[in-house]
């Protein structure tokens, strides 16, 4: 049973997926599930508003592209600003995870 991605984390996950290359919305949602080994579930109703916000912030860029077959699809890619934001988010997350791990990872001993 997957766990739904919280709204606050969707932006970071989208940026991380797009760091691997341009994707359309459907592929982004599936890629989050695949890369998390189905632990995280991306809810589409939250994905598209998050994509619009990231576009407005200039972190991603969406463009309609026509493939070899089928209709044009909107494909998203990371901007330079988005790359920088992702680096910052990764750094911030590593710090946060390390701090939490100090408490919950077994290395923390509560003083009596």
């Amino acid at each position: 049973m997957g766990r739904e991605v919280s709204k606050g984390d969707i932006g970071s996950l989208v940026l991380a997926v797009l760091a691997g290359g341009p994707c359309h919305g459907y592929a982004i949602a599936r890629e989050v599930e695949r890369q998390s080994r189905e632990v995280l579930q991306m809810r589409e109703g939250s994905l598209y508003p998050a994509l619009r916000v990231l576009e407005a912030q200039g972190l991603i860029k969406g463009s309609w592209e026509t493939g070899s077959s089928g209709p044009a699809r909107k494909v998203y890619s990371l901007t330079t600003q988005g790359h920088d934001a992702l680096v910052q988010k990764r750094h911030a997350w590593a710090e946060y995870a390390r701090a939490i791990n100090e408490f919950l990872g077994g290395t923390y001993e509560q003083s009596a």
Partner: peptide, 17 residues
């Protein structure tokens, strides 16, 4: 069901724009 309530999705998109 995966997309959720249409009204909420529409509102969220509207806000995001």
């Amino acid at each position: 069901a995966q997309f959720g309530d249409a009204h909420h999705l529409g509102q969220a998109l509207h806000q995001a724009h």
